[in-house]
Design a protein around this nucleic acid. Sequence first.
DNA 1: AAGACGAAAGTGGTTGA
DNA 2: TCAACAACTTTCGTCTT
Length: 308
Amino acid sequence: MSGDFVKKCPECGGINLFYNKEKGEVICKDCGLVVEEKMVDFDQEWREFDGDSGESKRRTGAPMTYTQYDQGLGTEVGQKADLYKLEGKEKNKFFRLRKWQYRISTAIERNLKLALAELKRVSSYLKLPKSVEEEAARIYTLAVQRGLVRGRSMESVVAGSLYAACRRHDVPRTLDELSEASGIEKKEVGRTYRFVTRELGITILPSNPADYIARFASSLKLSAETQSRAIEILERAQKSELTSGRGPTGIAAAALYVSALIHGEKRTQREVADVAGVTEVTIRNRYKELLDRLKLEKEIKKTKKKKE
DNA sequence: AAGACGAAAGTGGTTGA
DNA sequence: TCAACAACTTTCGTCTT
């Protein structure tokens, strides 16, 4: 492995980094820069393809957070020295707390076992790469340890973690797909996704519409030329600032729709809308914007004439 | 008859006071 | 915490092919 356990501050290059567990931040003591949560996530990406021993590595892989969990409880229950000072009721209280600690930790173990099984199921249903599954498992583990599952169903947090992992690895799956695979309502998946990423301080880059093109194109059985034309259209659209603030799937769908028209491989708005998980209306809106700004009318007319 | 178009009203989330 | 707001959806009537 790449053995870079010594993290450097990207600002000043110093190695005096301080990890604030509560906040999940990394702070550089030299220049005061908050290097933020990315540092924690980096080692996940190095550990991508370690195939067989996934389970065991997962356990040993996150010492910092496991210790955090122990610390939290440890201070609540008290040190051994305190035990001698206690009597009667107090002693009982102490043992009751100990019992609780035991129960909680086994509860977490059990929860994790179940959840990771569910996560594996959904992940294989969606044919996600191993690296994404690993990341999702880590995210979920963190979520459990921070008690973020309370008040939410285990399944929805699993779905949210998977969605987040997909986004971070540029392997976008739509909320609809996650929803279908996990049996959790789309709203709920989105909600827990946002909640979990915010609480864990995971930064998510807005997903790139181009990442969706390949998948959409193949389920619509469109040619490779159509596909690359769609990507080209997307690039131009981005330069014309047609993409900011809009849903990436809608833009990808519209670009694909136009591209199909140009190449004489027409698909109905309905068909495109279905695979992209948006409505025809959205495609129409994006489509119109594309035509207005990028003057693609000519190209469409060209192929129309060719047919005659 | 199917597809494309667009208006109008509703939903869920973000933002800024 | 609440209201304004933007993006997107649903629904539905009309036009086009």
